[in-house]
């Protein structure tokens, strides 16, 4: 491998992208090659200089107000987490159950009333038959009709 190839490896080394095998190869070469050693020092310095040259571009800006007003305009349509969707489903189900409770109660109570009326009538008829008082029975039927 010539110096051009090793210089490519130096770039990879400084970028932390070199393979272990190439790294060993490169260090063996650098021990013997002063020019590549200087190249490595220079490249490292260049990388640091490029980074520091562009770091001053961080300007003091405050766009938070403008971004937040756009967010409030757009409404969080898409920012609905799955959990939130489940919460809404639970809420709807609860409302349906609560609304249906009076209906269930009323149907039960109607049934109960009907049964109790029938039972009472049977009881009265049985009693009247036992006492053999037909006049009273007829009167009872008239009243009921």
């Amino acid at each position: 491998m010539d110096c051009t190839e090793y210089r490519r490896l130096i770039n990879e080394l400084l970028d932390n992208e070199i393979t272990e095998r190439d790294e060993i190869d490169l260090f063996d070469h650098i021990k013997m090659c002063e020019n590549c050693k200087i190249y490595m020092v220079n490249m490292n310095k260049l990388k640091l200089t490029i980074k520091s040259s562009f770091e001053n571009n961080k300007k003091e800006v405050d766009l938070s107000h403008s971004i937040m007003s756009q967010i409030s305009k757009s409404q969080p349509k898409k920012v609905l987490h799955i959990k939130k969707s489940y919460n809404i489903l639970y809420k709807i189900a609860s409302i349906v159950v609560i609304l249906s409770l009076p209906l269930l109660f009323s149907s039960f109570s109607k049934k109960e009333t009907k049964v109790s009326k029938d039972d009472t009538r049977d009881m009265v008829l049985e009693h009247l038959e036992n006492s053999q008082n037909k006049n009273v029975t007829n009167i009872a039927y008239v009243i009921e009709k």
Partner: peptide
């Protein structure tokens, strides 16, 4: 989150 990162993102 905007206040925290806007400067870096601007850069």
């Amino acid at each position: 989150l905007i206040l925290k990162y806007q400067k870096n993102i601007y850069g």
